[in-house]
Design a protein around this nucleic acid. Structure first.
Length: 400
RNA sequence: GCGUGGUUGGCGGAGUGGUCAAACGCAUCAGACUGUAAAUCUGACGGCUUUAUGCCUACGGGGGUUCGAGUCCCUCACCACGCA
């Protein structure tokens, strides 16, 4: 019996699936709902782990595919595991490399997001989704696993459920994910069905091959936009002895929340649910309300490096010329290190000049913003005012 | 004063007789980014409009050669270097 993690639910949002809790892990507790900071290559880009901790981040997520390519899981293992290697004291997670099946496969160089703004038309739905092996895609899928070409040097590598778990056991994070296939939102249902069956078989193989008792394994629900597939997937994955659950794959922006609700009604209440790769503010509110405990997303850090600053009124681009002589805080009233010490004009200059400090300060701010948001969300749930808080926040946030 | 080289868009800089509105950079503007191939990517960037395999304008000024000149010749102006 794996007892590596434990979720203690503290407070439920009346009449909905949302809740606060404390997730205990071998490396400390996580107050949920929580935003998981993404540190793909054992580094949160532009920041030190000490920075990340000081911002209130509770948990960091690395990536199996990336760490396998460099520096290699054996190096990380010799260092004492992911957290020890990067000097991050708190809880850690690793993603399985499953998302790279999508990002290096179908989505490769095509500008396809896993989130579809609108439902694709029949014409947009790819007829034969086996096309993943075509074009210049770097990933080829078969029933046993996925063959990748390294994005670094083109060398060929192969992941199977077994190898992904073996690598993740060496990486040694507290929470790890099953190897899954993240399908394109443009895939036809026929293909989604096939991919789902494969992902389910892989989930079982991941469970069967694991050896460590001190790591929690999260199963992943797939099924894309199709509610019946999602429901089926949730039932199957929930029936397996995972310590937690991920909700992955592609969505239509419009009905993402319905899908999440549907899935979380089926997943066991007492175990943590992680919404993979979701991080837009609106999506987080909707996810929390429907019972999601963990989110991870590259958005705050990636957008930070691209000069986009989060504020309660929405996001703005610090690089725009209008900020050139604004000698005022980056975000007025923000308590973060960047806003307390530096001006819009300075940050504008740093970004225009390509100075690393610009990336660092922006990342500090955006992550702080996310951490504050999650904290306020947790507080609002505890104070029975989540829906009010959500409404008020989103009214301002959308008013950009 | 003499000699040599140069003067192309906001800037740098290609182009040396014929699809040249003008490569490529930079800057600027706009857009994208949701389990990170991402300090990245896409588009616009002389003017006009019915936004197009459309029209007009440009290659320091003036003149010339040629069917045709940014490209050759003369001349003027300016810049750089060299020699006085």
């Amino acid at each position: 019996m794996n007892e590596s993690i434990h979720l203690k639910i503290k407070k439920q949002i009346p009449g909905s699936l949302g809740r606060t809790g404390v997730l205990s892990t071998p490396h400390g507790e996580i107050k949920t709902p929580a935003f998981v900071t993404v540190g793909t290559l054992a580094a949160v880009k532009a920041l030190s782990p000490e920075d990340v901790a000081s911002l209130g981040a509770q948990v960091v997520l690395g990536n199996t595919y990336h760490l396998y390519l460099q520096p290699g899981e054996d190096v990380v293992a010799k260092a004492g595991g992911l957290g020890s290697f990067m000097n991050w004291q708190g809880p850690t997670m690793t993603d399985s490399g499953g998302f790279q099946v999508f990002s290096l496969g179908f989505a490769y160089k095509k500008g396809v997001s896993k989130i579809a703004k609108e439902s694709p038309t029949e014409a947009e739905l790819e007829g034969n989704s086996e096309h993943i092996s075509e074009h210049s895609a770097l990933a080829k899928i078969d029933d046993d696993g996925v063959t990748f070409k390294s994005h670094l040097d083109g060398t060929e590598h192969r992941f199977t459920p077994e190898s992904s778990i073996a690598i993740q056991e060496k990486l040694g994070a507290d929470m790890i994910f099953v190897f899954d296939e993240c399908t394109s939102p443009l895939a036809q249902k026929e293909y989604m069905r096939k991919a789902l069956n494969r992902t389910h078989r892989w989930a079982k193989r991941c469970l069967d091959t694991r050896t460590r008792e001190d790591q929690a394994l999260f199963g992943i629900v797939q099924g894309g936009r199709y509610k019946d597939l999602r429901e089926e997937s949730a039932r199957y994955i929930a029936s397996l002895p995972f310590e937690g659950f991920g909700i992955g794959g592609s969505f239509d922006k419009d009905d993402m929340k319905e899908v999440v609700e549907l899935v979380n009604k089926i997943l066991p209440q007492e175990k943590p649910r992680h919404m993979l790769g979701i991080g837009e503010v609106e999506d987080i509110f909707e996810g929390v309300q429907r019972g999601v405990d963990l989110f991870d997303c590259v958005l705050p850090t990636r957008l930070a490096r691209h000069g986009v600053i989060f504020t309660k009124n929405g996001k703005y681009d610090i690089k725009k010329i209008i900020n050139r002589e604004k000698f005022e805080p980056i975000v007025d009233g923000c308590g973060c290190y960047a806003c307390k010490n530096y001006s819009k004009a300075y940050l504008h200059h740093l970004h225009r000049a390509g100075e690393m400090l610009g990336h660092r300060l922006s990342s500090i701010h955006n992550l702080y913003f996310m951490m504050e948001l999650m904290k306020n969300i947790r507080d609002s749930i505890e104070q029975d005012s989540f829906l009010k808080y959500k409404k008020e926040f989103l009214e301002k946030y959308k008013n950009i």
